[in-house]
Amino acid sequence: MKTMFKSLVAALALSTASTAVVAQDEYKALQDIQSSGELKVCFDAGYMPFEMKAKNGEFIGFDIDLGKQMARAMGVKYVPVNTAWDGIIPTLLTGKCHVIMGGMTITAQRNMQVLFADPYIEIGQSILLNPKVAGEVKSYRDLNDAKYTVVTKLGTTGEGAIKRSMPKATVNLFETQTDAVLEVTNGKADAFVYDMPYNAVYAAQNEGLVTHLGEAFTYEPLGWAIRQGDTDFLNFLNSYLRQIKGDGTYERIYNKWFESNSWLQQVQ
Score class of each variant (00 low, 15 high):
Pro167Phe: 12
Thr105Pro: 03
Pro131His: 04
Asn111Val: 00
Gly95His: 08
Gly158Ser: 12
Asp179Tyr: 08
Gln177Trp: 09
Lys138Gly: 03
Asp195Ala: 11
Arg110Gln: 13
Gly102Val: 03
Met166His: 08
Val99Arg: 07
Gln177Asn: 15
Lys153Thr: 15
Asn111Ala: 15
Leu128Phe: 14
Val99Asn: 06
Val171Ala: 04
Gly135Glu: 05
Gly102Asp: 05
Ile89Ala: 00
Gly187Thr: 03
Thr156Ser: 11
Asp190Gln: 10
Thr170Glu: 14
Asp142Leu: 01
Glu175Met: 09
Leu129Asp: 10
Pro119Ala: 09
Leu93Thr: 06
Asp118Gln: 10
Thr105Gln: 14
Ile127Arg: 08
Ala180Asp: 13
Val193Gln: 01
Pro90Ile: 05
Ala108Gln: 15
Leu93His: 00
Asn172Glu: 14
Phe116Trp: 11
Val171Ser: 00
Leu154Thr: 11
Ser165Cys: 14
Val133Asn: 02
Ala134Lys: 01
Ile123Glu: 07
Val151Lys: 03
Asp195Pro: 10
Met166Ser: 04
Val133Lys: 07
Asp142Trp: 03
Phe192Ile: 07
Ala161Tyr: 01
Val150Lys: 02
Cys97Tyr: 04
Thr185Tyr: 04
Asn186His: 06
Thr91Ala: 13
Thr94Gln: 15
Thr176Arg: 12
Gly135Trp: 01
Ala169Tyr: 08
Gly187Met: 03
Gly102Lys: 10
Ile162Gly: 06
Arg141Gly: 02
Glu175Ile: 15
Thr170Lys: 14
Ala189Gln: 05
Lys153Trp: 03
Ile89Gly: 04
Asn172Val: 01
Asn172Cys: 00
Pro119Thr: 12
Leu128Ile: 05
Gly155His: 11
Thr185Met: 13
Ile106Ser: 15
Thr156Pro: 11
Ala169Asp: 04
Gln109Ala: 08
Leu93Trp: 00
Val184Leu: 05
Lys168Cys: 08
Tyr194Asn: 00
Thr149Trp: 07
Arg141Pro: 00
Glu122Gln: 12
Val181Ser: 11
Ser165Gly: 05
Gln125Cys: 15
Asp142Ile: 04
Arg141Glu: 11
Gly95Lys: 03
Met112Lys: 14
Leu92Cys: 07
Lys163Asp: 11
Asp142Met: 09
Pro131Lys: 12
Asn186Ile: 01
Met104Val: 10
Gly103Gln: 06
Glu122Phe: 12
Asp179Glu: 14
Gly160Tyr: 03
Leu182Ala: 02
Phe174His: 12
Val193Tyr: 00
Leu173Ile: 03
Lys138Trp: 04
Met101Gln: 05
Leu92His: 01
Ile88Trp: 00
Arg141Trp: 01
Thr149Asn: 07
Val137Pro: 04
Phe192Thr: 01
Arg141Ser: 10
Gln177Tyr: 09
Val114Met: 10
Asp195Tyr: 12
Ile106His: 08
Glu159Leu: 05
Pro90Tyr: 15
Thr105Ala: 15
Ala169Met: 03
Thr105Lys: 07
Ile127Val: 13
Lys96His: 05
Phe174Arg: 07
Gly135Leu: 06
Met104Lys: 12
Leu129Pro: 07
Met112Leu: 13
Val137Tyr: 03
Thr152Ile: 00
Gln125Asp: 13
Leu115Lys: 06
Ala191Arg: 13
Gln113Met: 15
Val151Leu: 13
Asn144Ile: 11
Ala180Met: 13
Lys188Ile: 11
Cys97Asp: 04
Leu143Ala: 11
Asn172Phe: 10
Ile162Pro: 07
Thr105Trp: 08
Ala191Trp: 02
Tyr148Thr: 09
Leu92Asp: 03
Thr107Trp: 12
Phe192Pro: 02
Tyr140Gln: 08
